[in-house]
């Protein structure tokens, strides 16, 4: 057997350590999964004005409306979008310009059917004109924000993973 004390002394002299903080193997068998942590809290908007926040919330809810499960705004998507947009100069410009354009179109005052018609005109379209780029970003961020939220992932999609299974169930499918 090697002389551990000697080895540690040498390493102490060099100035590094090698003590491992590993739990003992006996603990492996007692594995429990902690419940998921609480959803992140965003606080007041960092970038959007109150009026801009209202417009973003309105569009987010047109993209993912409340149904039997929460919609985008109930899921906190506008706060997520504000957080992401705030971190990037190009997005800040795109959103400020895009929302200003919408306000020029009197979007907030439109009846819902007209708002939906406007979305229909610009969403999922190719091209680089301002409303197309703006709605492309807004749809992507709404989808990202919603389906990474607890309301979207767990309540709406019914995510069931991240658990302890004693064995993996086999599947039966018809041959043809």
């Amino acid at each position: 057997m090697p002389d551990r004390r000697e080895a540690l002394k040498i390493m102490g002299a060099i100035g590094t350590t090698c003590a491992f903080p590993f739990a003992s193997n006996e603990l492996y068998g007692q594995h429990v999964h902690p419940p998921p942590g609480a959803s992140a809290v965003y606080g007041p908007p960092r970038f959007f004005t109150a009026e801009e926040m209202a417009t973003v919330s309105r569009i987010a809810d047109l993209i993912i409306p409340p149904t039997e499960t929460p919609g985008a705004t109930q899921a906190g998507v506008p706060a997520y979008i504000d957080y992401v947009v705030d971190s990037n100069e190009e997005w800040r410009k795109l959103y400020r310009d895009g929302i200003a354009w919408l306000h020029g179109e009197r979007f907030d005052a439109m009846p819902e059917t007209d708002q939906a018609a406007l979305l229909e005109r610009y969403i999922d379209r190719p091209g680089d004109e301002l409303p197309v780029r703006f709605f492309r970003a807004l749809k992507s961020m709404t989808a990202d924000g919603f389906y990474t939220s607890e309301a979207g992932l767990v309540q709406d999609l019914g995510y069931k993973g991240n658990t302890v299974m004693a064995s993996f169930p086999s599947c039966e499918i018809p041959e043809h």
């Binding site: 149904t67 969403i123 999922d124 990202d144 709406d156």
Partner: peptide, 18 residues
């Protein structure tokens, strides 16, 4: 199944999209 990044590529919006 925690990653649903593909949802942004699905067409449409509104209840039919969801």
């Amino acid at each position: 199944r925690r990653s649903v990044g593909w949802a942004r590529s699905m067409p449409g919006f509104g209840k039919t999209y969801k």
